[in-house]
Write a protein that binds this DNA or RNA. Structure first.
Lengths: 282, 282
DNA sequence: CGGGATCGATACCCGCGCGGTATCGCTGCC
DNA sequence: GGCAGCGATACCGCGCGGGTATCGATCCCG
C-alpha cells in the first residue's frame, strides 16, 4: 500500500464525495475511483459503498480510515523528524517543546531555566498550543517533547515521566459567596446559578452541548470568570496566575492532575533526554 | 514520501550495502541509489555517507531508519486490520489475543472462559508468542489484544487496563538449600554458585553477555532449572505450573509484576472492548 | 412525468518514472 | 599491478498515474 493510495482513500473517506476529494487533493476526479478500486482489489476488501449519488464507508473502510490516518501521521512524522535531524546536524540544534498555552507557566519557566544551565543545553523552542493539540504535534513530529496533563491528555503512545501532581481548585469571580470557604465539593460548583462550566472543543473541533460558554483558551476563560459569566475547575498550579478579580477554592473530590513530560517512544535525541532528566530533577 | 521509498531506504540502511538490499527487495541494484538520492533531494537531507566501498548512516539517516520502520509498521498494521475487518464483516468475526507462551496460563484460562460466557462473544484465537514478540504483533495488526507484563514489556503506544499484580519468586531445583526459606532477597539469588540467571534475547534477537544459559521459552527455562543448571526470578503466578522437581521462594525486594491487557489505541472493535471489560471484571 | 443538474464510472491518450541491462569508475587487497 | 567488489551512470522500454471527454444513473424540481 503506497501513501498516495492512502492519502486518496482518506480524502474520499472524509469527504464522502469523489469530486470534493479530488479538488482537495489537487487532481482531477477520474483517477480517484480507479485508485480506490485498485486499493480495494489489493486489500481484497470493499471500502466504500457507492451508489451513483452517494458514498458511504463500509466497516472495513472505517477501519482503514482510522488506521490510515495514523499511518500517514507516522510517515509525516518520520519525514519531519528526519528534516529536523538534518538541520540539527548542520549547525542548528534545538528542541521544540509543546505545552498548553496558559498552563504550568511557572513549572515551565523553572524547567527552561534549569535546562539552560546544563552544560550541553541546546535552544528550546516553546510551542504554546491549544487544547489537545500537543498530542498531535508530538505524534506528527512538529514537537520533540511536551508537557501534558493527565488525565486530560491522552498519553498512550508516548513515553512519559511524571513531574508533579496537583489538586484542583474551582476558580470563581472575586467576591462570590463560595470564596469564603476553605474547600468545596465538585457537586457544589458544577451547577452554580449563573456560573456554568465552560465547554472545551473536542478533538474534532466541535463543542459538546450545554449551557456554558464555548472557550478555546485559558486567558479567555479567566476573563469570562472575572466577568461573572462562568466558573471552572482547574489544577492548583493555575492559582499563581490569578489576578485580584479571581479567587480559587480547593475542590476536594476532583481528580488530581498529574503534569507529565512526554516524548515519542524511541526518541534518541540527546537534547530530549537532557530536558527530561532536568525536568525530573526539579 | 512513498512507502516504496521508505522500504528501499530501510533495506539499504539495514544492510548498509546496496547490492544485498536490492537482492532483499527483489529488484536490481541500479534503481536503489537513484531512489535514495531522490529521497535525499526531497528531504533536503543527506541520509547515507557513501564511499565507493562502504555505506554508513548519517545522523538524519538513523533517525529516518527508526522513524521509517515505525511508519512502515503503521502502514502494514492499517493494511492487516482492514483485511481482518473485511473478513469479520463477511461472517468470520473473531479476535486474536497474544500472550507469552507459558505465562499467566491460569489467568488466561479464566479470561477465555468468562468471555466465552458473554452473550456477544466471538471466537478468540490465542497467539502464544516468544519474549517481546507481543508488542510487535499488536503494533503491526497481527493481534488485536495482548496480555503484557509490566515492567518487562513496553506498554507505551498502547491503551492498557491493569488486571493483577504479583510478587516475584525465585524458581529453584527441588532440594536446593534455599528452598527451606520463607523468603529471600534478590542479592542472595542473582549469583548462586552453579545456578546462573538465564539470558533472554533482546529485541534484536541477540543475547547479552553473561554466564547464564541462553533461553527462548519458559518450558526450556523450567527444564534447565530442574536440571540444576539455572535459576530464575519469575512472577508468583508461575507457581501453579511448577512440577514436583521445582520449588519457588518469594523474593521480597524484586519489583512486582503487573499483568495488563493491552490493545492498540483507537481500537473500536466491539470484541476487543468486550474482552477488556470481561478481563477487568475478573 | 420529463428535463436538467449532479456525481460516479468509463474510454482513451499522453508522459513521467520505475525497473531492467550494460557498463564505468573507484577502492582495497592479495 | 591486476583483480574483485561495489556504487554510480547511461540508456531503454513499458507500465501506470493523471489528464480530457463523455457516459449513465439518480435525484430534484416544476
Amino acid at each position: 500500500m503506497e501513501t498516495r493510495e492512502l492519502r486518496y482513500f482518506v480524502a474520499v473517506a472524509e469527504e464522502l464525495h469523489f469530486g470534493r476529494a479530488a479538488q482537495r487533493l489537487g487532481i482531477a476526479q477520474p483517477p480517484l475511483p480507479r485508485a480506490i478500486r485498485q486499493l480495494e482489489r489489493r486489500l481484497g476488501a470493499a471500502l466504500l459503498e457507492r451508489t451513483s449519488r452517494t458514498v458511504t464507508l463500509t466497516e472495513a473502510g472505517s477501519v482503514l480510515l482510522r488506521e490510515g490516518r495514523a499511518a500517514l501521521e507516522a510517515v509525516e512524522a518520520a519525514e519531519r523528524r528526519t528534516r529536523r535531524a538534518a538541520l540539527a546536524a548542520t549547525g542548528h540544534p534545538g528542541v521544540v517543546l509543546a505545552t498548553k498555552a496558559g498552563a504550568s507557566s511557572e513549572l515551565l519557566a523553572k524547567l527552561l531555566d534549569a535546562y539552560a544551565a546544563e552544560p550541553d543545553a541546546v535552544t528550546v523552542d516553546v510551542l504554546l498550543c491549544g487544547i489537545g493539540e500537543q498530542e498531535r504535534l508530538l505524534r506528527d513530529g512538529r514537537a520533540d517533547v511536551a508537557l501534558l496533563h493527565q488525565p486530560f491528555d491522552a498519553t498512550a503512545a508516548f513515553d512519559v515521566e511524571e513531574l508533579r501532581t496537583d489538586g484542583q481548585v474551582v476558580v470563581l469571580p472575586a467576591g462570590h459567596p463560595l470564596t469564603g470557604r476553605t474547600h468545596v465539593q465538585t457537586a457544589e460548583v458544577t451547577a452554580l446559578p449563573g456560573l456554568p462550566m465552560p465547554r472545551w472543543p473536542g478533538p474534532d473541533g466541535t463543542y459538546p452541548d450545554g449551557p456554558g460558554p464555548q472557550v478555546r483558551e485559558h486567558a479567555q476563560l479567566l476573563q469570562l470568570i472575572a466577568l461573572g459569566r462562568a466558573c471552572a475547575i482547574l489544577p492548583d498550579s493555575h492559582r499563581a496566575q490569578l489576578g485580584g478579580d479571581l479567587a480559587a477554592v480547593p475542590v476536594l473530590d476532583a481528580p488530581t492532575v498529574t503534569t507529565v513530560i512526554a516524548w515519542p517512544p524511541h526518541s534518541r535525541s540527546r537534547a530530549v533526554a537532557g530536558l527530561v532528566q532536568t525536568a525530573t530533577r526539579l
